[in-house]
């Protein structure tokens, strides 16, 4: 048994050191592309760290968002940066220029020291043996409608947090769209490899999204993980040159985008009227209500992420007039 503990210690030590080193390299690296590659590797190790901390739910979210979608988003952002700044082509030039105009180096330290002190104070003022709320969650789990405590907390006990997170995602997309007329990139026709890959992989991604949504009721999974896998399917199709039909880009797209927040809000109002408390489901129907909410949230998250990747409002019929 001691050998197992020793092995775990060694594994965790290397993992922790690797994470710190990768984080430092990713921040210190002057080349943006290299920083992105390091960040993707960082996401992979971070997911493993969550596994080591026995938090498979967080590991799944980190795998889906941190290591998967963020890499694609950052690479697309980098490509757009490069196409808008032609002088980036000159190797080594931009960093030197950037250093000259940058604020004095002590300025961030002055700003960050109070933040670090405040965080340190908060951590030190925590009760030494925090009991947490897991006992309370476990005691109320049978009225929660699902057997996975994380899903029960996210969708039932603290449902309003998730509702607000859905709105945050929507606001992010509104922000991107309000930047306006970003020229939408025309993709080259996909080669045989990409064409075959997207035909094979997109259905599997959609299937896995459905699986994660369903399994969330009793095991790690749920709307955010499923939504980001669905979003990855959208990203893959967009990269392969697929574009939303102009007729669907107006109302149907917007309906899909707001479905999650909308149904969540409707549920909040309904439960407020019926039960007298925000998002307090009747225990008998809690399971099915959570599934409905999660399904709508998955669709909205997936469509929002894919739309964020596209990086501009898709043109619709009215634009063509």
């Amino acid at each position: 048994m001691e050998a197992v503990i020793l092995l775990q210690w060694t594994f965790d030590t290397f993992l922790g050191l690797g994470l710190l080193w990768l984080a430092w390299r990713a921040l210190a690296c002057p080349d943006l592309f290299r920083a992105i590659v390091l960040f993707v590797a960082f996401g992979l190790l971070l997911a493993m760290a969550w596994v080591s901390l026995d938090a498979p739910d967080v590991a799944l979210a980190e795998a889906a968002i941190g290591a998967g979608l963020t890499g694609a988003l950052l690479l697309a952002a980098l490509a757009r940066l490069r196409s808008s700044e032609t002088n980036v082509e000159v190797a080594g030039q931009p960093e030197k220029k950037g250093l000259k105009v940058r604020n004095p180096q002590w300025l961030p330290v002055v700003v960050l020291l109070p933040v670090a002190a405040g965080l340190g104070y908060v951590v030190l003022s925590l009760p030494p043996d925090a009991v947490g709320l897991s006992a309370q969650v476990a005691a109320n789990l049978e009225t929660g409608g699902v057997s996975n405590p994380v899903t029960a907390v996210l969708l039932n006990f603290r449902g309003y947090d998730t509702l607000l997170e859905m709105v945050v995602l929507l606001l992010a997309l509104l922000g991107v769209w309000s930047l306006g007329g970003a020229a939408l990139r025309r993709e080259d026709a996909p080669g045989l490899v990409l064409d075959t890959l997207s035909r094979l992989l997109a259905p599997v991604l959609i299937l896995v999204a459905g699986y994660l949504l369903w399994v969330g009721a009793h095991a790690p999974g749920g709307a955010f993980q499923a939504g980001s896998v669905l979003g990855a399917a959208g990203v893959l199709l967009l990269l392969a040159g697929w574009r939303l039909h102009a007729g669907l880009a107006a109302l149907p797209l917007r309906l899909a985008l707001v479905a999650g927040s909308g149904i969540f809000l409707a549920m909040a109002v309904f439960t407020l009227l019926m039960e007298g408390q925000l998002l307090k489901y009747p225990p008998a129907q809690a399971g099915i209500l959570i599934l409905v909410l999660e399904t709508a949230a998955t669709v909205s998250i997936g469509v929002t992420l894919a739309a964020l990747f596209l990086g501009g409002r898709p043109p619709n019929k009215q634009d063509h007039r």
Binding site: V40, L44, A47, V51, P56, A59, L60, A63, A64, A67, G68, L69, G71, A72, L75, A76, L194, L197, S198, L201, V204, L205, V208, L212, V215, A219, P220, G221, Q225, V229, A232, V235, L236, L239, A240
Partner: peptide, 17 residues
């Protein structure tokens, strides 16, 4: 499941690159 998600999404990053 975490491994499954990794395996699927790595391909998307590669395609994006």
């Amino acid at each position: 499941d975490v491994a499954l998600v990794f395996a699927l999404l790595a391909a998307v990053t590669a395609v994006a690159f």
